[in-house]
Design a protein around this nucleic acid. Structure first.
Lengths: 262, 262
DNA sequence: CGAACGGTTGACACGGGTCAAGTCCGGTGG
DNA sequence: CCACCGGACTTGACCCGTGTCAACCGTTCG
């Protein structure tokens, strides 16, 4: 914890897992109790602290209770790609049990509090709480899908489309965990981090931001970002939502997990 | 099966799953028998046939027994991104149990034979063959990691680096399933498909290919592709291998899955 | 009160996109 | 056996979106 700056209150979530998973499942009291227990042991990281660095062994799974993080890869000459932005409720290193070492850096964008899950606890989820396991797998599937869509953006969308797309996507993710208030949400990234996420230069990011601001489509300052016309921005960005898979976990999953639990 | 053209013999694999998983685990006889059983029921698709289209419901998991496929997303105006290339042994729709509809097209690059796995069978893997489940999860983690690295390529590598990187990566994946022979492997993609994979135009792909060929680094024709100097190509492409996670599945996974199986 | 860092913009250069014009080759029909 | 056709392959010329370079400002922190 190298930085004691106060995080704005609205990026805090008391029960990120419960809040997120509730969207897809009607959690039973038993499941809620179990999740609340899981979320008890946490670890804090300061802004810009490396949670995991390239080459570190994977030993635990984390869930973000509070704060934002990113995953990045860097080439020798300094070129950097941010491959993923994690919000409260997101899972970090879901595949830690089957991998030896991290190929990415995982860094705190803000001060963070992470729920620490040991492998045995994760196993317990699969054994005793199959519906929760399904919801966790859903999260993982969602992450993969968001990653594919970012590839689509970086590969085939223009800078303007890409930027708009990122704003729309992030806003939707924030809505899901109830962190959009007064049409505004907190976006704790520097222009440089955002340009490394969207694979452009900082200079070009500014040019592109300016275009969206001139059209009054967005406003972004240290307080947060507001999107004034979602429909128009989605049109510009060629945003379509199915890739986010924001529907409840399907019935068949019950069948699948029931088979697992028996 | 709209196209009866003979696939070259060397893209065929009798037991793709067994062959692939053996790299990470010493499979027991029991596990081999089980996998052989799994691989019995298959479905064939002809070259260019859509295996799944955007919006189709996900109902099954497939494993590629023979042939290549790709996943793609398309924008209204025709821009296309190929997000993933699957080789024999690769798993398709691992997350089908927890998702409703596909957000991608999955298309056969060559005539294909796919092992069809029902959800109940997949559940059985997790119950009775936890080590196999670990290896499958490893495959899934590997896929995700390859996807991240492609994002790194498309976002931050030049066209030349990106192309070299793709060749090196694909060669390594082919080595793993023992499909490189005489320093050469089959690469059943058109220039247009490859350019949509690497997010450039076909014209620019040609320019870039020409540069690699002039340096005698590669040779690619209808017979296959050969890489004459892997070290040099890796250097040019800034290829590093850890992201492929090509080591055996770690010990701790046993612990994890033992917990699962009890 | 200076250093460090994030934010911001103008001027110019270049990698890769666009357009257009072919060539090559395997399959098909006369 | 040849003529034709469609699809994949190939390349030159030109141009635009984005990168590069170089400033400068504002704020925070030691």
């Amino acid at each position: 914890m190298e930085n004691a700056e106060q995080s704005p209150e609205h990026i805090e979530m008391v029960k990120p897992l419960i809040s997120k998973l509730s969207v897809f499942l009607d959690l039973t009291d038993d499941e809620r109790r179990f999740l609340a227990g899981l979320e008890r042991r946490t670890k804090s990281f300061g802004k810009n602290e490396h949670i995991i660095s390239e080459g570190d062994p994977y030993t635990k799974v984390y869930v973000q209770k509070q704060g934002w993080t990113y995953h990045s890869r860097t080439l020798d000459d300094g070129r950097r790609q941010i491959t993923r932005i994690n919000l409260p409720g997101d899972i970090c290193c879901f595949f830690a049990p089957v991998l030896r070492h991290s190929a990415n850096n995982i860094v705190a964008l803000t001060d963070c509090e992470m729920v620490v899950i040991e492998l045995e606890e994760l196993a317990e989820v699969f054994i005793n709480h199959p519906r929760v396991a399904a919801a966790l797998s859903w999260c993982c599937a969602h992450d993969q899908s968001v990653l594919s869509e970012r590839l689509m953006s970086v590969g085939r969308r223009s800078a303007l489309e890409r930027l708009g797309h990122f704003f729309v996507e992030t806003r939707r993710r924030m809505e899901l965990i109830d962190l959009v208030e007064d049409n505004q949400f907190y976006l704790p990234m520097t222009r440089e981090q955002l340009s490394d996420t969207l694979s452009m230069t900082t200079v070009h990011l500014f040019r592109t931001l300016r275009r969206l601001e001139k059209q009054q489509l967005i406003g972004w300052n240290s307080k947060g970002i507001s999107i004034n016309d979602m429909d128009e921005l989605q049109r510009i960005a060629k945003f379509t939502s199915p890739y986010m898979h924001y529907t409840e976990v399907p019935r068949k999953t019950d069948r699948f997990l029931k088979a697992l639990a028996d």
